[in-house]
Write a protein that binds this DNA or RNA. Structure first.
Length: 442
RNA sequence: GCCGCGGUAGUAUAGCCUGGCCCAGUAUGCGGGCCUGUCAAGCCCGUGACCCGGGUUCAAAUCCCGGCCGCGGCGCCA
């Protein structure tokens, strides 16, 4: 007669609401098979959970024969009677009357039961199998929820979602670290940031814009916290009093993301990620980089005044803030002009420093932002100061000749937030299909 | 880009320093067998590997050179 998938019920639903004694159809992947002669236990997994199927020779010989030859990760459907069982996980199990195999799985190339048993590189080679592990799968449910929470926050706060081009022409903010692509007969690049375009959004009159999309960096990093392609949550807002307004926004979004993740997945995170943070930060301190230098110096770390913090410095600062303020996050403000891009607004009374900030989460930069220079003449001068040619920024500079409000914005690295929140050891875990200098597939 | 480390069965590792005791050990997987209440089932039997090329040596997984591949640290950045 065959099993109809139309009558399929999700496993959690069955465990929660199924009536004992009734017949149900479930379908999914074979999690484990334990054969004991005349009785075979099959744990079936779908995207909602797991249930134990009991396949007995004296209930259905045909199903029993099929069951004892099942391989892990094969796709099957089972029709059976729900029964109570003290022994079974979830307290209930399905006594199988009929079993269909849709797809028999070969022997697995990686250990999907325990992610620590296979090195990450190999797991990523077999990413689709790696994601059969609920822990790994969960990371992407979390990111989806984070993005959703962020998007909702943006909409609630009057931001307009924009979609800017990722194919860009020659002139970009830095010049280096971009991927070249062939665009018909012209040189072109992959956008390393929507920076200039989101400013355009503000100046065009949207006033507040955000974008969630890919950013490309051609830096040959070999670290556990860099990708050549990542998801950036960018925001830009006009008519601000100062960069504090931007920090407030960043704090608002990040809090919204973390709050949502904890409330939605808290208990599952606790099970899967022993190093995860399960509490929203209370107060996020804001310190100037000069205060950060001092804190590091008094902790015995060498710092160079007027330079960006080293990665060691950032890590240490994270520890110090955690200890002194009890916060996993800290805003470091007023970065030196020499360490910031041309569009950053300088501090008017002290132009060595800028109206900019980084947000550190457990000692790692997860966001960067600041107030942008909106005065045409000053902007031209700053481009020159950075050794760039204003002629190459003509279209950009034009935006500041026809009414540009004071504005600022920031970029937040999605994978970095996820990595630090969950306490992952490698950012590649937080990206579905990570790209790094070596990896281009799958 | 600079620096460091590493490539042994499907997977993860031991062995390498101090060459022979290694036709390579262990765990897990896989194949087979027994078993009607297992919980990553258990027990028994079996299967399967030294990245590629060159060199040194009586002898190379082990030492040397080259290549390929991978991992990490730094700089820089989200």
């Amino acid at each position: 007669m065959g099993i109809s998938l139309r009558s399929r019920i999700y496993i959690v639903e069955l465990l929660d609401k199924g009536e004992v004694g009734k017949e149900y159809t479930v379908a999914g992947w074979v999690d484990t098979v334990r054969a004991h002669g005349g009785i075979v236990f099959v744990v079936l997994r779908d995207r909602t959970g797991k249930i134990q199927l009991v396949v007995k020779k004296n209930v259905s010989k045909e199903a029993w024969k099929t069951a004892k030859n099942l391989t892990p990760e094969s796709v099957i459907a089972a029709r059976g009677t729900l029964v109570e069982s003290k022994a079974a996980l979830g307290g209930r199990e399905l006594v199988v009357n009929e079993l269909t195999v849709y797809s028999k799985a070969d022997a697995l190339p990686i250990d999907i039961k325990d992610h620590t048993k296979t090195i990450l590189a190999k797991r990523l080679d077999w990413r689709f199998l790696d994601l059969r592990n609920p822990r790994n799968f969960l990371i992407f449910l979390i990111e989806a929820e984070m993005v959703r929470a962020a998007r909702e926050w943006f909409y609630e706060h009057g931001f307009v979602e924009i979609f800017t081009s990722k194919i860009v022409g020659a002139a970009t903010e830095g010049g280096a670290e971009v991927f070249s692509i062939v665009y018909f007969d012209k040189p072109a690049f992959l956008a390393q940031s929507p920076q200039l375009y989101k400013q355009m959004g503000v100046i065009a009159g949207f006033e507040r814009v955000f974008e969630i999309g890919p950013a490309f960096r051609a830096e040959p990093h070999h670290t556990t916290r860099h990708l050549t392609e990542y998801t950036s949550l960018d925001l830009e807002m006009g008519f601000i009093d100062g960069f504090e307004d931007v920090m407030d926004a960043v704090e608002g979004v990040v809090r919204a993301m973390i709050r949502r993740v904890i409330s939605t997945f808290g208990s599952r995170i606790k099970e899967c990620f022993p190093d995860a943070i399960l509490e929203e930060p209370k107060e996020i301190p804001r310190i100037t980089i000069r205060e950060a230098y001092k804190l590091l110096e008094s902790a015995g770390i060498d710092v160079e005044w007027g330079e960006d913090l080293s990665s060691e410095g950032e890590r240490k600062l994270g520890e110090i803030i955690e200890r002194e303020y009890g916060s996993p996050m800290v805003f470091v403000t007023e970065y030196p002009w020499r360490a910031r891009p041309f569009y950053t607004m300088k501090k008017s009374d002290d132009p060595e420093w800028t109206l900019s900030f980084d947000l550190l989460f457990r000692g790692l930069e997860i966001a960067t932002g600041g107030q942008r220079e909106h005065r045409y003449e000053v902007l031209v001068k700053q481009i020159e100061e950075k050794g760039l040619n204003p002629k190459n920024f003509e279209w950009y500079l034009n935006m500041f000749r026809f009414g540009a409000p004071p504005h600022g914005g920031a970029g937040i690295g999605l994978e970095r937030v996820a990595m630090q929140l969950l306490g992952l050891g490698n950012i590649r875990e937080a990206r579905l299909l990570p790209r790094d200098p070596e990896r281009l597939t799958p």
